[in-house]
């Protein structure tokens, strides 16, 4: 049922129920009917997008960008699937749904289909716990995954399919605000995998600039988390930690110099700045994955 149909059904029921009781409600009932109708009607038909909106890249695109920069796969870097059972509350589940999505993208992009399959299984289990089981229902995703296990391109298309189904489901069920929570988990995991490679792969000079490049989207991730519809999840600590990462990055001399002098090319952080940024990312990733 779509977000448009739900209020309309509510309106109709709102009209019918007082109507059924109309025999003993008298004039007061009639007045209530008119008020309810006008308010709900406006809420559904008047729905408009915000004047300023944004599009965040998919976890698969982020994994693709890191892969192209020379990132090497390391099985020790991802969040183990075994700890998924430890996530119980809504926020832990939503964040780690994002973390595991990024891990699956990392495996698929790096031709590790057997590992990727484990992440698909755990994502499916977490989806059931956060009310998104419909995304994976009747989809035979594991079967499709197995059928294409030797074909990385087909597995990427499968991931795109999951992403699209999730997007559609969240949109139709008025749950878009939750996508910023999934995405922040996916983003921090993607950044962590980049930092891991930066620290452990001496042959890769390109990954550092990609980490800095990805910082551009953090502002809108934080904006999405601040959506009032996320208020019930106690995400203040997450917003605080992400804001600290953003402020620290923006105050690096390399970053200020880049923007103040309108420099061409990429932002190149110095080693101490990378270390500082990396330590903040690792700390937040640990907080999220430890639950």
């Amino acid at each position: 049922m779509t977000k448009f149909a739900i209020p309309i059904l509510g309106i109709t029921l709102g009209l019918l129920l007082p109507g059924c009781n109309g025999n003993d409600s008298g004039d007061k009932g009639e007045l209530n009917i008119v008020d309810t109708t006008q308010t709900s009607d406006e809420a559904s038909i008047n729905f408009e997008s915000p004047d300023e909106d944004y599009h965040l890249p998919s976890p698969l695109q982020i994994a693709s960008i890191f892969k192209k920069s020379g990132l090497q796969y390391n099985s020790a870097a991802t969040n183990p699937t075994e700890v998924a059972a430890n996530y119980t509350d809504e926020l832990e589940l939503l964040l780690n749904f994002g973390v595991y999505s990024a891990d699956m993208a990392y495996c698929v992009m790096n031709n590790q289909p057997n590992e990727g399959r484990k992440y698909l299984k755990v994502i499916t289990e977490l989806a059931a716990k956060i009310g998104m089981e419909a995304v994976f229902e009747n989809a035979d995703l594991i079967d499709r995954f197995n059928a294409n296990i030797e074909n990385s391109d087909s597995l990427e298309i499968l991931m795109v399919d999951i992403h699209e189904r999730s997007e559609k489901y969240l949109d139709e069920n008025d749950m878009e605000h939750q996508s910023s929570v999934h995405f922040s988990g996916a983003w921090i995991e993607g950044m962590y995998l980049g930092v891991y490679d930066f620290e452990n792969n001496n042959s890769n000079d390109g990954i550092g600039t990609k980490i800095a490049e990805q910082m551009a989207i953090l502002h809108n991730i934080i904006k999405g988390l601040k959506d009032p519809r996320n208020d019930g999840m106690e995400i203040e600590w997450l917003i605080t930690d992400l804001s600290e990462i953003e402020n620290t990055f923006n105050n690096f001399d390399s970053v200020k110099n880049y923007y103040e002098n309108d420099m061409p090319g990429e932002i190149n952080l110095i080693e101490s700045e990378y270390n500082k940024l990396g330590s903040l990312i690792k700390a937040l990733r640990t907080k999220i994955t430890n639950g």
Binding site: S49, P50, D51, E52, D53, L56, I65
Partner: peptide, 13 residues
């Protein structure tokens, strides 16, 4: 009215 959508473009993509 003006409705605006921000889109990120990453290098080499």
């Amino acid at each position: 009215q003006v409705k605006e959508v921000e889109i990120y473009l990453f290098n080499e993509t």
